[in-house]
């Protein structure tokens, strides 16, 4: 107690300066999170007060076909979309790192899509490009090929959204580029003198030197992919269709909460998502000891 008092006496001005942030943390994060944790154990339709039902929401999920469908869709999206997006970002970053003229312009241009990539406008644009009479099909028709309705077919709808995430490679690319420029040139010079080819240089120097940045990008993109909402919401008109093929986890969560009046169930889903993201991130960290190389 005496210790606490002493710390308090020494630091109270510091806490005072922290209050704006503390208010935000408590009011906008901590309290809502705790409320949602409580609600996840209730049946709550938002009009009447919540009824405590224990773990029933959590148990129900595993029998809910649509929940299972949404887990499947989101998993494909994360585990296919993120590696593809990062590979693409790295490839472009390598190209731009060749010391070409006008690097700043290219960097800006390639970064632009990820600025408004999550926006409604782009999702609408995507509908136009991949629609039955969209740009892609017109191009195919020009080549004499019969296109299909990419967005409205259950087999292809999700992949059009994965293409959309890949297209938003700008943010990880800029970070990769910064990382690449940090790699000392003398390493490459030494390697060349020892007779290492380009591929060997990439595998033995670039990748290890870049691995902390790869880890960072991987984690950030995995987290944001799990939380993806806007593209599926707009492209499918909020339905997650056709046939639940774009029913992202967050979209189904939203449907439960705000159109089906099942806020308790939606809260339980949110907590499962949080825990899942936590576990996946922890797994990535655990494996990182094996492949991330920290200099010095």
């Amino acid at each position: 107690m005496e210790v606490v008092k002493r710390i308090w006496k020494r630091n109270w001005i510091g806490y005072l300066f922290l209050t704006p942030w503390l208010i935000g943390l408590i009011g906008l994060t901590a309290i809502p999170m705790m409320t949602s944790l409580y609600l996840s154990f209730t049946s709550y339709d938002m009009f009447t007060s919540p009824d405590w039902i224990g773990a029933q929401n959590y148990l129900e999920m595993f029998q809910d076909r649509k929940w299972i469908a949404s887990v499947k869709v989101t998993s494909i999206y994360v585990f296919l979309g993120v590696p593809l997006q990062l590979s693409f970002a790295l490839a472009i970053a390598l190209l731009l790192n060749k010391g070409i003229k006008g690097l700043k312009v290219y960097r800006a241009v390639y970064y632009v899509p990820s600025l408004f990539g999550g926006s409604v406008a782009i999702a609408i644009l995507w509908r136009q490009i991949f629609g039955g009479e969209g740009l892609i099909n017109n191009l195919l028709a020009y080549l004499g090929l019969q296109g299909m309705n990419w967005i409205s077919s259950p087999d292809t709808a999700l992949y059009t959204l994965i293409v959309l995430t890949i297209w938003q490679f700008g943010a990880p690319m800029v970070i990769f580029l910064a990382g690449l420029q940090q790699i000392p040139v003398d390493l490459y010079e030494a390697a060349r003198i020892d007779g290492a080819g380009r591929f060997k240089q990439f595998v033995r120097i670039t990748l290890p030197m870049l691995s902390p940045i790869i880890l960072f990008n991987l984690i950030m993109q995995i987290i944001s992919a799990f939380q993806a909402f806007t593209p599926a919401y707009i492209v499918s008109g909020g339905t997650g269709g056709p046939l639940n093929s774009t029913l992202f986890y967050t979209l189904y969560l939203y449907q439960n909460g705000f159109t089906q009046f099942q806020m308790g169930y939606a809260s339980a889903m949110a907590w499962i998502l949080l825990v899942t993201i936590g576990i996946v991130t922890a797994l990535v960290f655990a494996t990182s000891k094996k492949w991330v190389f920290y200099q010095g």
């Binding site: 039955g132 309705n149 967005i151 409205s152 008109g237 339905t239 269709g241």
Partner: peptide, 10 residues
């Protein structure tokens, strides 16, 4: 067909 219907939905 189903895909066309979906496309015009909404």
């Amino acid at each position: 067909d189903a895909a066309t219907t979906t496309e015009y939905e909404g």
